[in-house]
Simulated scan of single mutants.
Amino acid sequence: MRSLIARKSSVPAQPVAPHDPAPSRLSYRVQRLWLTPVFRKALNIGVPLFLLFAAISWYLSDEERVASLFDAAYEIRREVENRPEFRVNVLGIDGASEDVTEEVRAALAIDLPISSFDLDLEELRGRLEALPAVRTADLRIQTGGYLAVRIDERRPAALWLTHEGLSIIDHEGHFIAGFGQRELDGPLPLLAGEGADLAVPEALELIEAALPLGDRVHGLVRMGERRWDVVLTNDTRIMLPETGARGAFDRVLALHDVGEILSRDLTAVDLRNPGRLTVRLTDGAMEEFRRIRALVANGTSGENQG
């Protein structure tokens, strides 16, 4: 036993390694990461946000709680919208005739008082401009709960006769109303024929040129959607060309001023050929013309025989 102890004591002692103060690789990387500003901001902000998101998600996972939140928000919104300062109490319509005003009120269908938040002005404007008699509409909510509606109304310019009946149209040819559905301020020129609504400005120009004829003009007929015939009350037709209709009509009026050509027994004055004016006589006038021509022919033959 003693020899064993003596043998162990004879073994030299191993030196103890000194403690290394340097951090481990993992600790070093964590410290470097913590010193990064982006990481610190992400940790300081991201973790609270994540916890907040988790709490909100947990709260909203209950359908009853979600429904109660929506109900509360809706009640708050309705309380704000129904306050007196946001309420519309009066509707004013300007620029429209009495008949169109009634149509506008019916198209708006607003039950006053109403919250201004419940009014879609663009949708209401679209409703009004869909009315045949309305060109444009402008809607504004003014102070004092006043809804101002400004109407640019289509003005009747002519009556248009088609197979479907008689219609009132404006100077652009837009349909306004059926005849008898709108009160007119005075008589309107009568247009007829397919495509007459597409050439209303030219027709109105011809009507203006025919003012010297007074009430002898019955109306205008669109022929082949290309040109106009001016129809007089004695059924005489002035057949105008496709182009230069106003100039041709002025020439006829000048001839009438000189020789009362439109007061004669004519059924038509044809101006379709720019270089030639052709007239068509009535049956009675043709018979008289043939009789006179026969008398002239007989008288000439008698003189030759003599």
Rank of each mutant, 00 (worst) to 15 (best):
A268L: 06
I151C: 06
S3C: 13
L198I: 06
M239E: 14
M1T: 11
L43I: 07
G178Q: 00
S116I: 10
S9W: 03
H19E: 12
D270M: 10
G178R: 00
S116E: 15
R150T: 13
S301V: 07
E102L: 15
E205C: 10
R25L: 13
E102N: 14
N44S: 03
A6W: 02
G92W: 06
G306L: 11
G259N: 09
A133G: 05
L266P: 03
D215F: 08
R125G: 14
R226D: 12
I114T: 07
G224K: 01
L112P: 09
P132K: 03
F53K: 01
S97G: 15
T162G: 10
T101K: 03
P84A: 05
D120E: 07
L191F: 04
E98K: 03
F86I: 09
A13K: 00
R2P: 07
T236E: 10
D120T: 05
R251V: 14
N273H: 04
V16A: 09
L121M: 07
A6C: 08
S3H: 09
L159T: 02
P156V: 02
T36K: 05
E242R: 04
D235A: 09
L213A: 01
T143C: 09
I292C: 08
G193N: 03
T278H: 11
D111F: 02
S3M: 14
E225W: 03
A13M: 09
R7N: 08
E303N: 06
E122G: 15
E63C: 08
A67H: 13
E208D: 15
A158L: 00
A137H: 05
V217P: 06
V134P: 01
P156H: 00
L190I: 00
L4R: 02
Q142V: 13
T136P: 01
E242D: 12
L69T: 08
T36S: 14
D152I: 15
E123S: 15
N273K: 00
V30P: 08
A109N: 02
E103M: 13
L51H: 02
L69E: 10
V134I: 10
M223V: 15
T243W: 07
V252W: 04
G306H: 09
N234P: 11
L124K: 02
R280D: 12
F39C: 12
T136I: 09
Y28Q: 14
V134L: 12
A248V: 06
Q181A: 11
R77V: 11
A133P: 06
P189R: 03
L131Q: 00
P274I: 10
Q14P: 15
D71I: 11
R272F: 06
L108G: 07
W160Y: 00
E81C: 05
L119N: 01
A96L: 10
R154V: 01
R291N: 05
D215C: 11
R105V: 14
R276Y: 02
H171K: 00
L139D: 08
E183F: 07
D120I: 07
A177I: 01
R83T: 13
K41W: 12
D197H: 01
L255S: 04
E81W: 03
D99S: 07
T233I: 14
E194P: 00
L188V: 00
V11G: 11
R251A: 15
F70V: 11
H171F: 12
D170P: 03
